[in-house]
């Protein structure tokens, strides 16, 4: 899980809740982490958010299919403050580009469109959340992961009856803090989704025996891996190495024989 917040005050409740350790507070984008969660603080604005998202992806090992979550405060035409929203669409006000994070997580949080602005919104013209980072975060995170795992959570901090100028560090932290249950629920759901993608095919069985006995080129090694993986799915209890008839003199013959044996074995799919 990779979390990006703009402000330290937004990050603090999350850091405390997940007991994240400070990895590099002196760098441009301070980094906190535990075993499964990385959090970075981007600073305000979409350019900062883009850069911090790219950075957290890099420093966390550039693993594919990891969940990315942008958490922060936002203005909204609709009160009350403290209301948590998941972004159903994100629009960059300056370029009019738009993204639609797929909504496949079941939870009780409301959905809203988000418009990312360059300056704090004061007019709240549309029934939408106004933030300053989502449109920077989303396209970069979506390059690093599948879009279902890239989400934006915003908490209403200001509205026409309560302007952003009334906010301070303590109030911002409190707005995030009161939504920790929502945040935790979303993080758990995203991690579960990511786990779905980590389902691997069967490991090719007894591969090392084959590699020790015959010489396989890189391509042949790949072919062997494929046929042994299929073997593991279809005949997990049988050892292909022991069943291989004697007299296979080279890797090509071994692969071909394995494929024939697999094709001629009884196939029970039901």
């Amino acid at each position: 899980m990779r979390i990006i917040t703009a402000l330290r005050f937004e990050a603090m409740p999350i850091i405390e809740h997940y007991k994240l350790n400070n990895e590099s507070s002196a760098s441009r984008f301070p980094l906190y982490r535990n075993d499964s969660i990385f959090l970075t603080i981007s600073g305000v604005g979409k350019e900062n958010s883009s850069a911090a998202t790219a950075n957290i992806h890099a420093v966390s090992g550039e693993l594919p299919q990891q969940p990315f979550l942008n958490i922060g405060i936002a203005g909204h035409r609709r009160p009350p403050t403290g209301m948590a929203w998941i972004a159903s669409s994100i629009q960059d006000e300056s370029t009019c580009r738009r993204w639609y994070p797929p909504q496949i997580i079941c939870n009780s949080m409301a959905r809203t469109s988000v418009i990312t602005v360059n300056q704090p919104e004061q007019e709240y013209r549309h029934d939408t959340a106004y933030d300053m980072e989502a449109a920077g975060f989303y396209p970069i995170a979506n390059q690093a992961s599948t879009s279902e795992l890239v989400q934006v959570l915003k908490v209403t901090s200001d509205h026409p009856g309560k302007p952003a100028s009334s906010l301070n560090a303590k109030k911002i932290s409190a707005l995030i803090q009161i939504n920790m249950n929502n945040i935790e629920e979303l993080i758990t759901s995203l991690q579960k989704l990511a786990d779905t993608l980590n389902i691997k095919g069967a490991e090719p069985i007894h591969m090392q025996h084959f590699l020790d006995r015959w010489h396989f080129t890189v391509t042949q090694r790949f072919q062997l891996q494929k046929v042994l993986a299929r073997w593991a799915i279809l005949s997990p209890t049988k050892n292909p190495y022991l069943l291989l008839p004697p007299g296979r003199s080279n890797a090509t013959a071994v692969i071909k024989t394995l494929e024939i044996m697999l094709r001629e074995s009884p196939l029970n799919l039901h």
Binding site: R98, I104, E148, T196, L197
Partner: peptide, 19 residues
């Protein structure tokens, strides 16, 4: 087409709750 079939979507994940 803004929502359907852009790059970086996962059919298996979306199948859990299609829109």
């Amino acid at each position: 087409t803004e929502v359907f079939n852009p790059k970086k979507q996962n059919f298996r994940l979306q199948k859990q709750k299609p829109a």
